[in-house]
Design a binder for these strands. Structure first.
Lengths: 219, 219, 219, 219
DNA sequence: CATGAATGAGGTTTCATTCAT
DNA sequence: TATGAATGAAACCTCATTCAT
């Protein structure tokens, strides 16, 4: 996939290593200053490389975006796949609880990438790139929709508008990345997961008591 | 307020008119292409002006951001103030319902500006500007917090974490602006307001039935 | 002479009056900021005129230089002419004394103009203008040369190099205009005239005593 | 010193070499056309460089002035320092003679720089730069004042106003730079030094004969 | 006569990219 | 492979001048 980016280097391992480094340092700079406001010279300096060397591993400045998008896509796809084995739970509530924990933790790991694409993504048009990012978003919503549907069918949840609710849930988790300027002042990761999960679950249930009662009966 | 931006024009009305136009056309371009990717010549062309004429009404490209932020600030402040007279409702539920309707409708009106600041804001550092934008955000959260607190005290709502819940509510409304690529495919404004309000209220209440019963008693 | 500058005005008196005002205000600005660094807008503002009105009295920014040079030329010519009637003195020393007084006083009157042409003149090439300025300079040197020659022939002065001495004398007087940043801290006009005249005369004479003795005999 | 000017080059020697060249070519253009009237493109062309390359060695057009002033300051300070060892002369007259020769020869070397600052200096305001240029001027005047004072105390010179005389002497030398349009038509450097020195010495002495007599006695 | 909004050529500066070493 | 000096297109901005009102 990265192979489509022009390189002068023949050593594939070195390419991988250097590109990963360039990607990482560029992301830091892009987050801080924005893509257009960051110069190639700054990127090279942050990578402890000369400009010439940098251009041995990338074909153009835009290629760095492509690297980043490849990264994001790979990560999110892997993540999405991992949803599927969240199946050995006695209640859908527990299933959702586990899914949210996993999702938010994933968000926490790649928050820089997420924020970057939320903020800058639209304008930095790299062919077929942005669509993929958002198709992953849509996929996440679908996963949640399925869980909600399952919960409603089993009587654990009661939701008027499953699509909107699923969309809301993904958004409420995603904000851990893009509203951190607000949230980090008030919560650490674990607190956010716990509190947010409770609020979300509460919004889906008949009455918390009922659900608990039902869960007891079910087990 | 705009007066701090350099101008060569002496006609105050004309300045206002032209600046409003420049602001609007620039916003369209910035939304489509991004701030840094939009050139002064493009802005001038979009405004059917020469570059020189453009510079009679602004002092620099950055000043356009300042105009936008002034706009956003003014709008949001006016909106925030209007929250206060949402007081003649028999139940807090109705009060919140009205507030959400008003808030989302406002969002709908200035969505371009909001999206722009969500996306571009951080990098486009104009002194003291970004802080103000987000202080308005925080203010909105506070308004919701107050309503939730009132509702909890009166027994209408039950919320574990009022701050987080309030933050979530604002976010769930804001998305009408910045997640429109997803939402517009599925809902029109009225649908969104109605559905989202129900989901939010549902997440705050004991049981919907209880609330309705209570409301009946109160009237 | 001014008539060669384009104007839209038909009222000759008004033209003269306005042009004089423009000239004066422009000179002040040019002295402070330099010709190129002064904008037409600034000149118009200093003249309490609109830009359009300003252009009714001048054809271009360069015309202001032409006005100034016309002024300088007229003034210097008039001054030069006045040298001629400095003839009814018993000694050449007295003649030179009177000439220097007159010259420095004239310099004092139009020092802004002089300084401007010394500093800015060369680059601001207005056809045939700069040459005239300096031909006046050369004329002044010639006048002094004649006085010195007369003084030497009569035995009052003794000068090795009359041309260089005359040139020096003019320079020593001119500095009252262009070295004022140094001289004004130490001397007022009268002091400068008196002290400088004595130094110059002293440099030209055998011994001061001899000259005085000779003068006594001659009378 | 030059290090405070922004550069993209990392090769210090090259920077020095290129800046010296830029300085020299710019000075020629500035002398001919004036600072504001000379464009960056013209400077680049005169340096056989692209505009981009030029900007690798300077941070802005104004920096060229800074380079020039650094140059002028360095040169004049070195020169001023060299005055001090003008001490092994039997008469103060010889001392002054040597000092004037040295001073005028120095002026001759950096005449372009001197003329440029005399003409353009005031408007081209680079912080703390102009003051330094003229403080060196004042320093030169002081050196001459000291020599004159010594000469008067020893009876070799007789001067009514030592400060003004010293100021005059510096000016009479400086003109070799800024009145060359007049002087070069009539004198070569050696002639100017010789003739001017005699005129100056003559202006300071009782009678030339007396001085010579005195010198004979003193030896 | 007076005004000042409009113009656009041309100025300074930046920066992604190349290529000789 | 690594370097960084060189390039020049294109960005932002200025300002003398015009002309409709």
């Amino acid at each position: 996939m990265d192979r489509s980016i022009r390189t002068f280097s023949k050593n594939s391992d070195l390419i991988q290593k250097r590109r990963k480094f360039i990607k990482q340092k560029s992301l830091e700079l892009f987050m801080e200053k924005g893509y257009s406001e960051t110069t190639i010279r700054e990127i090279a300096a942050a990578c402890h490389m000369s400009v010439g060397t940098l251009y041995h591993y990338i074909g153009s400045k835009e290629d760095i975006l492509l690297l980043m998008s490849n990264d994001a896509k790979a990560f999110l796809k892997e993540f999405a796949a991992s949803f599927i084995d969240v199946s050995d739970y006695s209640t859908v509530t527990d299933k959702l609880r586990a899914a949210l924990k996993k999702y938010i933790e994933s968000i926490d790991e790649i928050q820089n990438t997420i924020v970057f694409w939320y903020q800058a993504g639209k304008h930095l048009y790299v062919t077929g790139l942005f669509e993929n990012i958002f198709s992953v978003e849509e996929f996440s919503v679908q996963i949640i929709e399925e869980i909600l549907t399952e919960g409603c069918q089993g009587g654990e949840f009661r939701v008027n508008n499953i699509n909107l609710a699923a969309n809301n849930i993904i958004l409420l988790c995603d904000q851990w990345a893009f509203r951190r300027w607000y949230l980090r002042k008030r919560y650490i990761l674990e607190e956010f997961i716990e509190n947010q999960t409770e609020l979300i679950l509460n919004s889906l249930c008949w009455k918390q008591e009922n659900v608990l009662a039902k869960a007891d009966l079910g087990s």
